[in-house]
């Protein structure tokens, strides 16, 4: 197995972008390590907003889907979220077959994802502030 990191992280505004490295890293040998890496980010930063870039990924199995769901659930506990971007056609189809396209927000590209995710965070912040004003009144 290669020593390159499974995911490289970079903060872009209020979003943590995780770029999955290599084309077929998410096979049975490193799925658990992949899940642990994401879960540790979710646990160490409550409320974190993660956008995962799949543009380098050509293959994954259902074990990866299970890891993504665990992270998604953990993030929901703290109002964080995990969104996905740049899935190839085959991988996107796997999400559709397994109904996970209804669980995850999936963007066509990283750029598209960053723009729309940022906007949705801004709208949610606005709604929270309006709710707080309503409670004070």
């Amino acid at each position: 197995m290669s020593n390159e990191p499974l995911i490289t992280f970079e903060e872009q505004g209020s979003i943590l972008v995780g770029r999955i490295q290599a084309t077929s890293v998410l096979d049975a040998r490193n799925v658990a390590a992949f899940g642990s890496l994401l879960l540790s980010r979710a646990e160490s930063t409550p409320g974190i907003q993660i956008l995962l870039d799949f543009s380098q990924v050509s293959y994954l199995s259902s074990a990866v889907l299970n890891e993504l769901l665990k992270v998604h659930r953990k993030l929901l506990e703290t109002n964080g979220s995990l969104r996905l971007a740049a899935l190839n056609q085959d991988i996107r189809k796997v999400f559709e077959i397994t109904n996970l396209d209804k669980v995850f927000v999936i963007y066509d590209s990283l750029g598209d994802g960053l723009r729309k995710f940022q906007r949705s965070i801004a709208i949610e912040a606005q709604e929270r502030s309006w709710n707080n004003i309503g409670k004070q009144e």
């Binding site: 199995s61 259902s62 889907l65 299970n66 769901l69 665990k70 998604h72 659930r73 796997v94 077959i97 397994t98 109904n99 996970l100 209804k102 669980v103």
Partner: peptide
């Protein structure tokens, strides 16, 4: 069974059945 959208397992057979 077909997995619920947020079930954490059971997708392997679902994928095979589809493909």
């Amino acid at each position: 069974p077909l997995p619920h959208a947020d079930a954490v397992s059971g997708r392997g057979i679902c994928i095979i059945r589809h493909c």
